[in-house]
Simulated assay, not measured.
Amino acid sequence: MNTRSDLDWLPESGVQVRKAGVRFDAVRLDGDRGREVADRLARMTGGDPGPVLETASGRRCVYFLVPPGSTAHLAWPPEVTRLTSGPDRECFIPIPALDDMTWPFAWRYRPTAPDRFVHTLLLRTALHSAE
């Protein structure tokens, strides 16, 4: 099992926010569509799609953590929200601890390695095959 020293961007407890563009960016989808895409992506990758987290309240968002800068210059469906940072924009991503009470945030697919993130092009494929 991973420890905090393996994944230094994870909080030790609770939920903390991380600035997009430093270690990763995120692609957010709301509701059941986000969960369907996450599960489709997991099937495409043999059960290891990279880190995907979800919320259990509100819009029930699903966040796919992707390499920083990897969502730029790509066409995305209108229901996708890209969480990136740049000269005129700062975004922050909620990150729950691996093993702590973090409701309403939880890992749908836990991170497995320090620099292992969701593959952006595979995510786009999963999005388009879900339409």
Results as ranks from 00 to 15, higher is better:
86 G>T: 10
6 D>H: 12
26 A>M: 09
2 N>F: 05
41 L>H: 05
82 R>V: 15
3 T>Y: 04
9 W>G: 00
95 I>V: 15
91 C>G: 09
18 R>V: 13
113 A>G: 10
129 S>M: 10
119 H>G: 03
49 P>G: 09
5 S>A: 15
11 P>H: 06
60 R>S: 10
48 D>M: 06
16 Q>E: 15
104 P>H: 09
83 L>E: 04
44 M>G: 01
2 N>I: 14
101 M>R: 13
86 G>V: 09
39 D>A: 11
26 A>V: 11
23 R>K: 13
83 L>M: 12
23 R>Y: 08
1 M>E: 12
123 L>N: 02
60 R>Y: 10
120 T>P: 01
129 S>C: 08
72 A>N: 09
61 C>Q: 11
41 L>E: 08
65 L>A: 04
32 D>Q: 14
110 R>Y: 05
22 V>N: 07
47 G>Q: 09
57 S>Y: 03
66 V>S: 03
93 I>A: 01
89 R>E: 15
120 T>N: 03
42 A>T: 07
17 V>G: 07
67 P>D: 11
14 G>E: 02
26 A>E: 08
121 L>C: 02
8 D>Q: 06
63 Y>W: 15
69 G>R: 03
119 H>M: 05
5 S>V: 12
48 D>R: 12
98 L>C: 04
84 T>S: 11
118 V>I: 09
105 F>K: 06
110 R>Q: 11
124 R>Y: 06
53 L>I: 09
44 M>Q: 13
96 P>V: 09
11 P>I: 08
82 R>E: 14
2 N>M: 15
29 L>Q: 02
72 A>V: 10
51 P>E: 04
88 D>T: 12
36 E>Q: 13
5 S>Y: 07
60 R>H: 13
117 F>S: 03
122 L>P: 00
38 A>G: 07
83 L>P: 00
114 P>F: 01
82 R>S: 09
7 L>Y: 00
51 P>Q: 05
85 S>M: 02
4 R>G: 11
104 P>A: 12
53 L>Q: 13
49 P>E: 10
14 G>Q: 03
47 G>N: 07
